[in-house]
């Protein structure tokens, strides 16, 4: 009994001695395809305990497969990426109908990504997520705020899977550094 108690106590109180780096909260994900390779980018809020002000970084990865591109991004980070607050999935024009279902399936399978995340189309996802945010910390949050006000779009992840990936996604383009919404 004493040994069990000792093991539990040690396990509980000593397991905290871990190396901690900055944490990455992903606000939006962008998917593109160029020259037969996937280009994925994660717009992440970097949370560093040393710094009271959060910074935003666009993490980029490229690979022959979607999984490979995402793994490249994961390797850049000291801590696991926090995907549960990712509210927008930006699909570049390079992604075809078949590839879109692949992206959607990956997101559905990943338990962390919420099924209520919005999907939008754009010419180049990486370019869109590089725009300077206007009202929020990240472009992802800006887009999410605009989409939440616009109820007639049926572009959430669960809606897309329900329509067998045939739903029309809203199109967002860049004009003078700002965002323009249009029909997909």
């Amino acid at each position: 009994m004493k040994k069990v108690f000792l093991i539990l106590a040690l396990g509980l109180f000593l397991c905290g001695c871990q190396k901690r780096g900055p944490e990455y909260l992903v606000s939006s994900m962008g998917f593109d395809k160029e020259n037969d390779s996937y280009k994925v980018c994660f717009e992440s809020v970097i949370i560093n305990s040393e710094d009271t002000k959060q910074s935003v970084k666009l993490l980029k990865g490229e690979g022959k497969t979607l999984r490979g591109a995402i793994m490249r991004i994961e390797k850049q980070c000291t801590q696991p990426l926090l995907l549960s607050h990712c509210g927008v999935l930006v699909i570049g024009d390079g992604i075809t109908q078949n590839e879109l279902s692949e992206v959607a399936k990956y997101c559905v399978k990943n338990e962390e990504i919420t099924l209520s995340a919005f999907l939008i189309k754009t010419e180049n996802a990486q370019q869109l997520l590089s725009v300077k945010p206007v009202s929020s910390l990240t472009v992802g949050f800006d887009i999410m705020g605009l989409l939440e006000q616009n109820k007639h779009y049926k572009n959430r992840l669960f809606e897309l899977t329900a329509t067998n990936y045939t739903a029309a996604l809203p199109r967002v383009s860049i004009n003078d550094g700002g965002l323009i919404f249009g029909a997909g």
């Binding site: 901690r20 900055p22 944490e23 909260l25 809020v45 949370i47 560093n48 305990s49 040393e50 009271t52 959060q54 926090l82 607050h85």
Partner: peptide, 10 residues
């Protein structure tokens, strides 16, 4: 969530 993560850091 951001605020909690920041305060928990370190």
């Amino acid at each position: 969530a951001i605020s909690v993560m920041q305060l928990r850091g370190g």
